[in-house]
Design a protein around this nucleic acid. Sequence first.
DNA 1: ATAGGGTTAG
Length: 836
Amino acid sequence: MASLPFTTPKFSHFKLSKTIKSFNSNEPIHPTQLNGTTKNHHTLYKSYFHTISSLCKDGQIQQAVDLLTEMDSKNLSVGPEIYGEILQGCVYERDLFTGQQIHAQVLKHGAFFARNEYIETKLVIFYAKCGAFDVANNLFSRLRVKNVFSWAAIIGLKCRIGLNEEALMGFSEMQENGFLPDNFVVPNALKACGALLWLGYGKGVHGHVVKVGFDGCVFVASSLIDMYGKCGALEDARKVFDAMIERNVIAWNSMIVGYMQNGMNEQAIGVFHEMRMDGVEPSQVSVSSFLSASANLGAIGEGKQGHAIAVLHGFELDSILGSSVLNFYSKVGLIEDAELVFDKMLEKDVVTWNLIISSYLQCGLIDKALDMCHLMRSENLRFDCVTLSSIMTAAANSSNIKLGKEGHCYCIRNSLQSDVVVASSIVDMYAKCGRIDYAGHVFSSTTNKDIILWNTLLAAYANVGHSGEALKLFYQMQLESVPPNVASWNSVILGFIRNSQLNEAKEFFSQMQLLGVHPNLITWTTLITGLAHNGFHDEALLVFQEMQESGIKPNTVSISSALSACTNVTSLQHGRAIHGYAIRHDLGSQISVSTALVDMYAKCGCLSRAKRVFDHISSNELPVYNAMISAYALHGQAGEALAVYKNLKEAGIEPDGITFTSVLSACSHTGLVNEGLEIFIEMASKHHLSPSMEHYGCVVSLLSRSGRLDEAFRLILTMPYEPDAHIIGQLIAKCREHNEIELVEHLSKYLLELEPDNSGNYVAISNAYATAGMWDDVSEIRDLMKEKGLKKSPGCSWIQIGEKLHSFIAGDGSHPNTENIQATLALLGIDMKSSA
DNA sequence: ATAGGGTTAG
């Protein structure tokens, strides 16, 4: 390439004329220094022109205008070039007011000036640059002679205000009118292509560029890289980049940004390094994009380097670069560093505030996030869509409907509710605060619904098991030409599961695959959890297997669910296999997995393994302690259960209701009456927990087991709950043990009168009779149920009865499998398959 | 004596 006609000369001219003129030895003499008698008219005019011209280039418009008035008063006739210079000065300074006054003077001077092509073009450029869109457009449309300059100005303007289609229409039109686009318009056209993702048009422009030989222009090449980057054509971007002979920092930046915005963060980081190796000084834009790439990757080392480079280059942490640093620290979880950067930043804009707010929300610091919102307001900044979505998230996560409503009102007052992201967050907030009706209203009143909004409401219905509503929405979205994605299918399936429609869930699971929608981790996990939770343990395990075969790596939730399925079918073999899988995939020490493992081993009769898992936990968290306590309770080792309870308190963990259920049931199973009662009192006095029905149940059983039936009965009468089937059932069982048959009958009658149509009670009473070995009575109750035409309860309750009958028959306390239980229950005429 | 252009954060 012989020369670079587009870079050096024009660019340097532009810069030099503005800055270096004042150091020039040929500095123009001020007109007043001239002696009017000795100099002729022409020299005086030239002197005025030069002075005005350099004043304008120095940004001293007012002085230039004063000289113009001075010329007028001396009756020196002012030529178009002087007006042109001043208008250009107004463009540099974006001084709309002065420019308008010059425009008025031009008009006053009559048609000679007003219809001068140079001045007319300058005026269009001036108005276009100063953002007076209508005036610029109007003047342009009335131009008798259009040229490349005026076209460029108007195309540039349309580009800047986002009218990209119009910009490109102008670009085509100027060519139709015989103007060849120069290397100054092309970048604007390319910018519009990039914004519209019109790759084809952009390639056409690229063709023109090559044909006329603009490819040596850094401006054009950078714009091409940017355009290809925006359109996701990174290979084309790279080709242009590699072909560049001379690259400036903007070309490098365009390449880095292109990679970063397309998720190719490693490449972005690579180009940043290449650039530094090439000896090109990074700009703030380079560092900012590099930080974004590091943040996206969670690359802590790189991001910290980026921060260091910014400091070493003496870059101010302005609102943009500072926000990039802040975003990086927040994304990699270094919240303290993010806070430090935030405090150090001098100029903060809405984006900066939004970042610190969402950083706090990310680590669950809702109050701090809200404090920041207040501070932001006191700095006179207005909330925008992002702030409002954050506030809604805060309200949703803390079920604070008051806050949510306040935010909603703010949205309405500031017309933010039409933003689809905000609308989704409002829908989600109302749903999470239990007002699904409000969620529906907000949804309906949002005009531009995108798939996220549809999915938000769909997920809300699914969560509460409104499968019918979910299904309706699922069909409606398709009628409105929004094709459901995998998340939509997931919600429909979840809706069915939450409404115990397992067959429908499975049906939709196969339908989505037939339609070519691939189930993702969430789909599989939903199905596995749903099956396990509804008693279809074998099937849950099969699906867990299928999931792995389809190449999806299980997460902790699916592993825990599978383990719970193993627990319920007491399949130690499967459970151990899953344990092995979890260890191989580094999920074995995850707290939810450890908890499920302890539970599985304990319920599969392998208390020593449960203890071994518990001894190897890496973090002290309540659920796994609870599982271990309940494991000991199950195995009747109340002493050990109490020891774990003590450890838990020593570790500074606050026990919850579940802890007490396990401890109390351990005590009740082993007859540790005094310890149990003491803990029951401690629960309310020390830990401020109000006992649930279940806790009372444990204490009732504790008392009744040790023969203190009177006290048990009194507790039932004084507790703040209506006695339920379970608690009465326990008492019934004890009464039976103490041969209080009359009391048993009495209590059963009481219970069935209390809730004559609650099939759960019948099962519970059966359970009580089963515990007491009164199998005839079990059959009797079952017949009564049949007479009443009551729907049978889920299979799991019958499984307990079946287990008891089995061990009664077998007499060895062995753990029956599902088939054993089914066979045993058949003796009582109970068909478990149909009752599940 | 004669105009102007590209990149960045949630």
